[in-house]
């Protein structure tokens, strides 16, 4: 009997161990670190206080960085949902052969290293980049459009890599719906666009929700893309944390910023989850 009861624990032990060592321990240590203080001459002091949090929450500079980060994440999420949802619907209705080909195309961006992909965007977006050169040669613009070192450029590159997560999540949700519901709506007099808006879209909501949770949290904590495309000028939270740790060497402040980012992303996700589940109660089991 006791052997029976121990078996599930034994089976999950490797995963639990990995989880504890690789995730929980660093998180707890980061949390503890965020309560310590920093002295320019003495380094990290093992004190315990909320000084770092007070510094961050009392400084408009940090508010601007957090605001920018969440705006970038929000814009990325919205654009991904707008692109990904119809695309998932097309995938669902495709011939199985073309569908497998298209899924590979969709997953393409994920197969390329983030640094390579982002440098590719830098080549495209730069003042003397491919896009500006082309527009100038066509005579459409006189002076280059500023795309590098802007939030817009970061959003563009993030959408590129995040859209597969949205498509796969929505696609999974659409596969669970009964295809006869579309026919039923059609037989009741609904035009194709009405069928999509009133029948398909609400049933895709669980997918859009889980997709947007993934995209939002990954975008809010993305580092390489904003670091390369935003540089020193367009700072986001993760690049700020990086700077605190590696340039200023103020680890406790960096830890406090990281913890605030974690908590606020969690809060936003939980709130969004609640809202959507309440609004589309019928679709969620």
């Amino acid at each position: 009997m006791s052997g029976e009861r121990a078996r599930p624990w034994l089976l999950s032990a490797p995963a639990l161990l990995l989880f504890a060592v690789m995730l929980v321990t660093p998180l707890v240590m980061t949390a503890i670190l965020s309560f310590n203080s920093f002295d320019f001459y003495g380094g990290i002091q093992p004190t315990f206080g909320l000084g770092n949090y007070a510094d961050v929450l009392g400084d408009g500079y940090f508010y601007e960085i957090f605001g920018r980060t969440f705006l970038i994440a929000l814009a990325t999420t919205v654009i991904c949902a707008l692109i990904g949802t119809p695309q998932a619907y097309f995938l669902l209705r495709m011939h199985p052969f073309w569908r497998s080909v298209m899924i590979l195309v969709v997953l393409g961006p994920l197969l390329i290293s983030v640094v390579v992909r982002t440098l590719g965007w830098a080549i495209l977006l730069g003042n003397n980049g491919v896009i500006n050169e082309a527009l100038r040669n066509l005579g459409l613009i006189e002076r280059p459009l500023k795309m590098m070192y802007t939030s817009g450029g970061i959003v563009l590159a993030l959408v590129h890599v995040m859209v597969p997560f949205m498509i796969l999540a929505v696609w999974a949700a659409l596969q669970r719906q009964d295809p006869a519901t579309e026919k039923a709506a059609e037989s009741l007099g609904a035009k194709p666009i009405t069928v999509f808006r009133r029948i398909v879209l609400p049933q895709a909501m669980p997918g859009i929700l889980s997709g947007s949770l993934i995209v939002f949290s990954l975008s809010a904590s993305a580092f390489a893309t904003p670091a390369i495309l935003g540089g020193r000028r367009v700072k986001v939270v993760s690049t700020t944390v990086y700077d605190e740790f590696l340039n200023t060497l103020n680890w406790p402040l960096g830890a406090a910023i990281a913890i605030i980012l974690l908590v606020s992303v969690l809060a936003i996700m939980v709130a969004w989850n609640r809202l959507v589940e309440k609004r589309f109660a019928g679709v969620f089991q």
Binding site: Q177, A180, E186, G189, P202, G282, V283
Partner: peptide, 21 residues
């Protein structure tokens, strides 16, 4: 087209809209 035929159809799976009362 199907939407203009005005037929009432009951599907094998019922095909009720899960998000509507």
């Amino acid at each position: 087209p199907a939407r203009a035929r005005g037929l009432g159809i009951v599907f094998q799976t019922y095909a009720l809209f899960p998000h509507m009362t």
